[in-house]
């Protein structure tokens, strides 16, 4: 039974991801992308990683997708149904993504996944907080600097020129 649930979720993720890059209407592809992200969150919940699933929905669906759709709505004429979905960089793009896919497949197939499966007793917030500020403090601070730079950049771009 649980295998059926897993394959159903995997099918949802794959199908909606393919549809989000192939449908012609920009708004439709945004909705398909939302479904992809939601199905990934469902997969996290199914794998007992509740915290990850919740953050996935909060950040990607509640934040990023909302801004995507907001941008689509604010851009004039982008909702036109006859927009071309491909440009001249179709073949180089395909080559690069095929290369990335092969590398990722190799890494996934070489990993000792069976040994990594342990029973997760539920995430303790204190453990997460401590880990972020001790073991992973460098990447944590690095990400916050990137976010700060992005914030300042957005303000500079968005400032009305006098």
């Amino acid at each position: 039974m649980s295998v059926v649930v897993f394959y159903f979720l995997a099918f949802c993720i794959g199908a909606s991801a393919v549809l989000s890059v192939t449908v012609r209407d920009v708004f439709h592809s945004a909705i398909w992308l939302t479904l992809t992200l939601l199905s990934i969150a469902c997969l996290y919940f199914y794998l007992d990683a509740g915290f990850l699933g919740v953050i996935q929905i909060l950040v990607y669906v509640g934040g990023i997708m909302t801004l995507f759709v907001f941008a689509i709505m604010l851009t004039a004429r982008i909702g036109d149904r006859s927009i071309q979905q491909t440009n001249r960089q179709l073949w180089p793009g395909l080559l690069i993504s095929a290369g990335a896919f092969t590398i990722m497949l190799k890494i996934i197939l070489s990993g000792p996944w069976a040994n990594l499966i342990t029973l997760n007793p539920g995430i303790d917030l204190k453990v997460v907080g401590r880990a972020l500020l001790t073991q992973y403090v460098l990447p944590f601070e690095f990400i916050s600097i990137i976010l700060l730079a992005a914030l300042v950049g957005a303000i500079v771009i968005g400032k009305v020129k006098e």
């Binding site: 939601l38 953050i55 929905i57 909060l58 509640g62 909302t66 759709v69 709505m73």
Partner: peptide
């Protein structure tokens, strides 16, 4: 997080 999905429906 779940209630934030409804924004997409409003859109």
């Amino acid at each position: 997080s779940i209630t934030s999905i409804s924004v997409i429906g409003v859109f």
